[in-house]
Lab assay of single mutants.
Amino acid sequence: NKSRCTICSKLAEIRHEVSVNNVTHKLCSNHCFNKYRLAN
């Protein structure tokens, strides 16, 4: 079950899903999750 990561755009296994204003951001790693948190 692979999806495209919101941060790095890599097609990968999604580890984190963050839902903001009915938009789901898919994040493939802790690294991308941290980058997402810093950016938002």
Rank of each mutant, 00 (worst) to 15 (best):
C28E: 01
V18A: 07
E17G: 03
V20M: 11
N22D: 11
N30A: 13
K10R: 10
R15P: 10
Y36F: 11
E13D: 11
N34Q: 13
C5K: 00
R37P: 04
C28M: 00
I14E: 05
K10C: 02
A12G: 06
N1M: 09
N30F: 04
C28Q: 01
F33L: 15
S3G: 13
C28K: 01
N1E: 11
K2T: 10
N30D: 13
S3T: 06
K2W: 07
N21K: 10
N21M: 07
N1W: 03
N34C: 03
A12M: 14
L27A: 05
C5W: 00
N34P: 04
K26S: 11
K35M: 08
C8F: 00
N22F: 01
C32T: 01
S9L: 10
H16T: 05
V18T: 06
S9P: 01
I14D: 10
F33C: 04
N1R: 07
V18R: 05
N1V: 10
N22C: 06
I14W: 03
N21Q: 11
R37G: 12
S19H: 08
I7M: 13
S19M: 10
S19N: 02
V20W: 03
V18C: 02
H16Q: 06
A39V: 11
L11Y: 04
R15I: 04
H31A: 14
L38T: 12
C8Q: 01
S19E: 14
R37K: 03
L38W: 08
E13W: 04
S29V: 02
C5M: 00
F33M: 14
L38R: 14
Y36W: 15
C5G: 00
N21Y: 13
H16N: 14
I14F: 02
V23H: 09
V18M: 06
I14P: 15
R15G: 07
N22E: 13
Y36D: 04
H25C: 07
N30Q: 14
C32E: 04
Y36Q: 07
Y36A: 15
A39G: 13
V18I: 03
N22T: 09
T6H: 05
S3W: 08
A39L: 12
Y36K: 06
N22V: 03
E13L: 05
N30W: 02
L27S: 02
K2N: 09
C32R: 01
C28R: 00
F33T: 05
R4P: 10
R37L: 08
N40L: 05
E13R: 05
H16W: 02
R4Y: 08
N1C: 05
H25T: 12
A39I: 09
C5E: 00
N30R: 09
H16Y: 03
K26Q: 10
T6W: 08
L11T: 10
V20D: 08
T6S: 13
N30E: 15
I14Y: 03
S19Q: 12
N34G: 11
F33N: 02
L11D: 14
S9E: 07
E17D: 10
R4W: 06
R15K: 14
S29P: 02
L11K: 09
